[in-house]
Write a protein that binds this DNA or RNA. Sequence first.
DNA 1: AAAATATTAACAATATAATGATACAGAGTT
DNA 2: AACTCTGTATCATTATATTGTTAATATTTT
Lengths: 70, 70
Amino acid sequence: MKMEELGKIIKRRRKVLGLTIRELANLTGTSKTTISQTERGVRNPTFEILQNIFEYLNLEMKVEVKKRKE
Amino acid sequence: MKMEELGKIIKRRRKVLGLTIRELANLTGTSKTTISQTERGVRNPTFEILQNIFEYLNLEMKVEVKKRKE
DNA sequence: AAAATATTAACAATATAATGATACAGAGTT
DNA sequence: AACTCTGTATCATTATATTGTTAATATTTT
């Protein structure tokens, strides 16, 4: 998954929950700059930042062994 | 998921593939310092670093809406 | 046992992410 | 029109992750 793709997931989820960038920034304790750039994939955020965002968007991250194509 | 937990997943997977820290560091183009500390959860790596590690361990990351407890 | 290999620790230097401030554009409202 | 809210853009500053080196400590191998 590329950062750009992840950003879209975050943005979509934020919209579903009816949050603004500012609100999400306040909730997660980051800045709106970080949220905005993360959503657009022009940032390379740290794991901590991502986990924080996931928490308030009620998202969870999973890591699995990549499946081979059938 | 906490960084510590993710680190364990990475370490376990690296062992399964029979790679050393140095080898994984070379493969991913990072340093062994970064790999070592990431595996032990004493680091807060960037998304890019994690994705790089996942790629060479044949792991993939997924983001899903957290399920409510039954 | 010694020797080789693998991992961890600690540090300075560098690179870069995060922050805060400001400004701007677009859309909607009054 | 002015006003408000939202999202984006840019910048300087701060914070911190990364790197490379060295050394020390496991762990394995012979």
